[in-house]
Computed example of a mutant assay.
Amino acid sequence: MQSAIKNDIKKTKREPAKRIDYIMLITVILLVIIGVLMIFSASSVQASYEYNDSTKFLRSQLQFAAIGFVFMYIASKVNYKIYKDYVFIIYIFNIILLILTLSPLGVSVAGAKRWLNVGFRFQTSEFSKFACIVTTAYFINLNKYTMHKLKSVIIPIGFLILNCALIYVQPSFSAMSIILMVGLIMIFVGGMSVKFMLISAVPFGVGIITLMMKQQYRMARLISFLDPFKDTSGRDWQISNSIYAMASGGLFGVGFGKSTQKYFYISQPQNDFIFAVIAEEFGFLMSVLLIFIYVFLIFRIFRLFVDTKDTFGKMIVCGVGLQLGLQTIMNIGVATSTLPNTGIGLPFISYGGTSIIMFLSMTGVLLNISRYRVSKRKKEVVK
């Protein structure tokens, strides 16, 4: 009898869950729908002025979202463990993309080379986010029993530094910072000792501050964060108008499509400051509800992290959850002036083809991992 129970336990541990996490899927679809609606509202004025077509950004985002959902479906069907076999190909391909971005093939916008033209503008740092997550997860899984030793963390940190250096020179300071933070936190969660974490945090912190101070516009953003209303017609116009937009929304908002701050008072209303338009048109209550939706999605990802027993899969879940959570916090923090301006989009909502394609693709990877999670039924059998 006992041997039969043990065999049943072993069998249940091996069997993948037959259903993906549909709650996670529905939550992501809801965020994409909100994003499409708000991009139409936030971008209509700018699109009419620049392209004589108020639906220009809307139609582009719908196309990108459709591509993203196709990639998400494919990723949800592909066994996530295959990334372990091709991790170096993924990383090298990522490095090649970053190098090509800096070459004459790269597209320069406002003095920054962050895109490749592949029929549409492809922002290579967005792919780097996934590539670094998979690469870091691979090394953590490879050294899962020795992550407390320095030799086990040097190599993944070196891969991160190389990647971040190529992104920095584009320049894309915000993307570099978030990739570095996600990678280091993953390594810490994977077993890096507190001593090594503290030792590495100091030089990385000093390095980031030094790089920030080297560029005058980054220092201007920091000063603007400290006093967002000192120069509202100059240096502080972005953040001050973002605050005005949220304040004018009140409790219930001015109504969908009725934002006044999107009339060239807010920079990139369909992208970096789309949360300000949401707050203005739908008010404080809907803004809090949107934040709750993100918190709920992060909670679902955290549950998947707990229920995933394979180290490689667990660390991919950790990385994607950190990427989503940190980027959400940074975007909303900038719009509300609780963080310095970083120029980073709101996941699933802000306009951006590469961003929504990559976030939906990473969601597909999570959905595939959710097939192999330990379900409640299996936990009961194990007990």
Rank of each mutant, 00 (worst) to 15 (best):
T12Q: 12
M176D: 03
M24N: 11
C132T: 05
N94L: 05
T336Q: 07
R221K: 12
K309R: 14
Y217A: 05
S361Q: 03
M38H: 04
I223K: 00
Y351F: 14
N7T: 07
Y49D: 12
I33E: 02
K309Y: 03
M147Y: 06
K314D: 01
P104W: 12
V32A: 13
S76Y: 09
V288K: 07
G325R: 04
D227T: 05
Y351V: 02
P16Y: 09
I157K: 00
L37H: 02
Q216E: 07
F264S: 07
S60P: 08
R221S: 13
M246Q: 10
F284Q: 04
R59Y: 13
V45S: 01
K195A: 09
K314Y: 00
I179Y: 06
N368S: 06
L222E: 07
S375R: 09
D231Y: 12
P228L: 14
T328A: 10
G345L: 14
G205P: 06
N143W: 06
G319Y: 13
S54T: 13
M330E: 08
K383M: 13
G183V: 03
Q2D: 14
K113D: 08
G353H: 03
S350Y: 05
G111K: 01
A131V: 08
M213Y: 08
V202I: 11
D307Q: 10
S287Q: 02
T336K: 15
F264M: 09
T135H: 02
F292V: 08
I34G: 10
S174N: 05
V134E: 02
R14G: 15
G207V: 11
Q268Y: 03
G321R: 02
A335P: 03
R377Y: 13
Y138C: 07
G313D: 13
V374N: 07
